[in-house]
Design a binder for these strands. Structure first.
Length: 904
RNA sequence: GGAUCGGUAGCUUAGUUGGUAGAGCGUCCGCCUUACACGCGGAAGGUCACAGGUUCAAGUCCUGUCCGGUCCACCA
């Protein structure tokens, strides 16, 4: 005998292995089928999967499994991302912790080797987790953004863009992370609020006057000031423009200039211009031809400043500068100030705007086709409201800084000849005593040779001593090519021909610009086709109280812990039940128990049906002569549920599908159909009822399989012999199709009467504490015999479901003594309860009903007395209101009579 | 500063073209009724943030306000 509660752990392990070993998820590339393709957003190899991965990948898995069952050539491409800075940081921390070493202690080559070892370890851990989650990814054929084929794709892109002059080298103010010691692109910078200070500093006039007071949050940069700027409209400073003031502590004279960029209302209305350390100032400086002078170097240390501060850390220098200014009497005011500070999105340290020569991609031409695709709707967003932010970003796109001064990543495929590029190359000796190229300057004469492999000789001077550019590419550079590179692009592979473009990109909105936009641009640029036509942006997982999950807050829920505890299906289903478009998902352990309970319910319903199958030889054919109300009704319910489930999948509203199937299975199938079937198991109808049970259940399993693959697969295996299904796996079966001939509104109405009366009697039983074992009698009465036809026909249903022994149905039946009464539509329901009835309770119940009936009558009468309502409302609305009025009046009469009886 | 999403029962929320509000959890009551106590039956609980407007009719459409969230932006 099967255990009473479903125990997922063993089942899931068994099935996960079975699926993978059967290569169930492998690419079929069947030319006769419509492809449905998703490429996975490759997780970074920075550690274990978190709830965000669980969520987004489960959504993709449902789509893939469902479309496979729709008969399409569904293929989900697996892989991982090398993760650039993020991964390098993880390894650096690991090295520091385990060996007290920095990457410099190892040297570049050795360090990169360590990261590759880590990939083999961590990558495998991730693939194991893919398998555990039941995701339909063929793990015998995986991709990694740094493997050979993907590296080739990266090179091809670089080469083509270089040839088209999209890629160029330029010196400008870039975002520099002092901790990661690398440049970052604009979108890798986060602007986070910080409680800082606004210092008001006096710059004395060169002529010895009081000069001008400026406000700044960065006093340590005053040594790099090039000017003081005021708004040209600002009358306070009109006569000062053109004069010179002295930088405090540095004793250097700078001019006062006028520029529109200065906000008159902010601070003192005067702004110090420091072109080397602020992007706005850089622009102002360019307009006024100001010199650019850096006082902070790439390590965050002070340089080119008064000797007292030389070599100091920028933060320490800030403190010291403020102190010294105060002592010099030049600190006018210090106020607390909450403002946004640029932070590195990977390590959180403050970004330093930094003058530096870097590699860039010119974006405007590449962006243009993407803008058009979004505008025309060829590229569709789900939910649609992301279209505008997407367009906005593209229209204001800046050139993309693609070089990173880190070690882990795709090395820039550019080489230099040590002979003829000499003047532009800077070398340094690393801790291993090896000479390393550390800096390249095109301005100073470095001549690039673009090549994947080391060229045999220099094309310019035929020298043989060539060195590769020290930088690596932004990790998003390879990600941008992902939907093509996974299929072997730039090679003309059969996969590329069959599977590209893909169908939908499912990912979080936080990487819409970082990733999605770039895939769209590169895809269009290289293939002329969108990499996908739909973008499905899922919400992010938050904790119960709406907070983002983070390790520091201690509110993370580990999906692997949860699957171990409740089963993978439970974790998946809980996520899916809440996957409403455009909403973040508040997640807590309680939400998983609900889903776990559902899986258990499904399992037990199946167990019950299988128990009753004993002694019956399958397969049973689906009955064709279905006339019994319960059967007709459940087929209608099933049809409606399937229709909605499919619709949800097609419209990327998986919560709708999940909820619909949940209620169909639990409320309709278990609570009503199976309960009614129990009675029929005792009759010669048994085999027919069993056939229906088994077929409906099997089809429900199919419908649910994309959502909860394990438990459905497990049950299906036992059920197959009875339905005559051939496929070994549900995934190879077809998704149920709504059978319109099963739609039956009349059955819905009739069943509603049965359910309504049953509920009323149950309520009475409950209110008067009638023991469940005690059979009671009941009377259903109406003024008109036609209202009683359904009740008469399905007396047996009511008797079973409400536990009624004798049910009397008749026109104007007399009300027995000591009776609880209730009404349903035009029906009066009497339940004689001699000895059990509590008159006071009954009176309260009836008075409540009375009040409700009166309120209903009043509102319907009010509406019907409006001429405009009768004139404008559709006839069916008017009829409905009239019917409601009539019903309420009947109820009122019945309740009034009951109350009078009670008083007597 | 701009944009955008949301404010519905104690909590988390669903609500498809406007027709008078559903669910899960929690609470309370009664039940181990021959699948399931991860269960069954029942109950309580909502002037759908606020103010206007359109309409015969507004949770649903429009305008404004308040309160949250998020994204973008060079206010030092």
């Amino acid at each position: 005998m099967l255990p009473k509660a479903y125990e997922p752990q063993e089942v899931e392990k068994k099935l996960a292995d079975k699926w993978q070993n059967a290569h169930l998820f492998a690419a079929k590339a069947d030319p006769n089928k419509k492809p449905f393709v998703i490429v996975i957003p490759p997780p970074n190899i920075t550690g274990a999967l978190h709830m965000g991965h669980a969520s987004t990948n489960t959504l993709q898995d449902v789509l893939i499994r469902a479309h496979r069952m729709f008969g399409e050539d569904a293929y989900w491409v697996p892989g991982t991302d090398h993760g650039g800075i993020a991964t390098q940081n993880v390894i650096e921390k690991k090295l520091a912790k385990e060996q007290h070493k920095s990457r410099h202690d190892l040297g570049r080559e050795e360090f990169v080797k360590v990261v590759w070892d880590w990939y083999n370890e961590c990558g495998n851990a991730i693939y194991t987790q893919f398998r555990k989650m039941g995701w339909a990814l063929d793990l015998s054929d995986i991709r990694f953004t740094m493997d050979d084929k993907r590296a080739r794709a990266v090179y091809e892109c670089f080469k083509q863009w270089w040839d088209k002059k999209y890629i160029y080298r330029g010196k400008r103010l870039i975002n520099w992370c002092v901790r990661c010691s690398t440049a970052l692109s604009d979108i890798e910078v986060e602007h986070l609020p910080e409680n800082g200070h606004l210092w008001h500093l006096r710059y004395k006039g060169e002529d010895g006057s009081d000069g001008i007071v400026i406000a700044t949050t960065r006093p340590e940069t005053i040594y790099a000031d090039a000017a003081i700027a005021v708004n040209p409209k600002d009358k306070r400073f009109t006569n000062m423009v053109g004069k010179k003031v002295i930088i405090p502590l540095a004793n250097r004279a700078i001019p006062i200039i006028a520029d529109e960029a200065v906000e008159m209302e902010f601070g003192t209305g005067a702004l110090k211009i420091t072109p080397a350390h602020d992007a706005t100032d850089y622009e102002v400086g360019k307009r006024h031809n100001l010199p650019v002078m850096s006082v902070i170097n790439d390590k965050g240390k002070m340089v080119n400043c008064p000797s007292t501060y030389l070599g100091m850390d920028r933060d320490a220098c800030r403190k010291q500068t403020v102190k010294d200014l105060d002592e010099a009497g030049l600190l006018v005011k210090e106020e607390k100030y909450n403002h946004a500070v640029s932070k590195c999105y990977r390590c959180g340290s403050a970004i330093e705007p930094f003058m530096s020569e870097q590699w860039f991609v010119k974006m405007d031409e590449i962006a243009a086709p993407a803008i058009q695709a979004a505008q025309t709707g060829e590229l569709a967003f789900h939910p649609a409201n992301w279209k505008n932010p997407f367009l906005n970003w593209l229209k204001n796109i800046q050139d993309w800084c693609i070089s990173r001064q880190i070690w882990w990543g795709h090395r820039i495929p550019v080489w230099y000849c040590r002979d003829c590029s000499k003047s532009g190359l800077t070398f340094a000796t690393d801790l291993q005593g090896k000479e390393q190229l550390t800096k390249v300057s095109f301005e100073d004469g470095a001549k690039p040779i673009v090549s994947f492999d080391k060229p045999a000789q220099c094309p310019h001077c035929h020298g043989h001593d060539l060195v590769q550019d020290p930088d690596v590419l932004d990790t998003w550079f390879s990600s941008a090519l992902w939907p093509m590179s996974v299929f072997g692009w730039p090679e003309k592979t059969p996969e590329m021909a069959h599977f590209y473009p893909t169908s939908v990109m499912v990912t979080g909105y936080e990487i819409l610009y970082l990733w999605v936009a770039r895939m769209v641009m590169t895809g269009l640029n290289f293939t002329g086709k969108l990499p996908f036509k739909d973008v499905y942006l899922n919400g992010i997982i938050r904790d119960k109280s709406g907070q983002k999950m983070s390790k520091s807050k201690g509110n993370v829920i580990d999906p692997l812990d949860m699957t171990a505890k409740y089963g993978t299906d439970a974790v998946r289903f809980s996520l899916l039940m809440q996957a409403v478009p455009s909403k973040d998902i508040p997640y807590s352990e309680e939400s998983i128990t609900g889903a776990r309970n559902f899986c258990n319910k499904l399992y037990n319903a199946s167990r019950f049906i299988l128990m009753n199958m004993q002694g019956i030889n399958g397969p049973l054919a689906m009955p064709t002569d279905v006339t019994e109300l319960a059967d007709v009704w459940i087929l209608d319910r099933f049809t409606q549920a399937i229709k909605t489930a499919r619709e949800g999948i097609e419209k990327y509203n998986l919560a709708l599908s999940a909820n619909t199937l949940y209620h169909f299975l639990w409320d309709d199938f278990c609570d009503w159909y199976i309960e009614l079937a129990k009675q029929r198991f005792q009759t010669d109808e048994k085999e027919k009822v069993m056939a229906l049970c088994v077929h409906i259940l099997y089809n429900t399993l199919k419908a649910l399989h994309p959502f909860i693959p394990f438990v459905t697969e497990e049950i299906a295996a036992s059920l197959r012999p009875y339905v005559g299904a051939k496929e070994e796996f549900l995934l190879n079966d077809s998704y149920p199709v709504a059978n319109e001939t099963w739609t039956n509104e009349n059955a819905q109405c009739q069943m509603a009467v049965v359910q309504g009366i049953t509920k009323q009697i149950r309520t009475i039983r409950s209110q008067f504490n009638v023991p469940p074992a005690l059979k009671i009698t009941a009377v259903v009465s109406a003024a008109d015999d036609k209202d009683l036809q359904t009740v008469r026909a399905y007396e047996s249903y009511i008797k079973l479901m409400a536990k009624v022994e004798n049910l009397t149905v008749g026109v104007n039946e007399p009300k027995p003594k000591q009776t609880a009464t209730a009404t349903f539509e035009n029906l009066a329901i009497y339940v004689p309860l001699s000895g059990l009835i509590d008159f006071e309770k009954e009176r309260k119940r009836l008075e409540k009903d009375l009040a409700l009936a009166k309120a209903n009558i009043a509102s319907r009468q009010a509406r019907l007395s409006q001429e405009n309502f009768l004139k404008h409302a559709p006839q069916e609305q008017i009829d409905k209101t009239k019917a409601e009025l009539a019903a309420a009046q009947t109820t009122l009469a019945q309740v009034t009579a009951s109350l009078e009886d009670l008083a007597a």
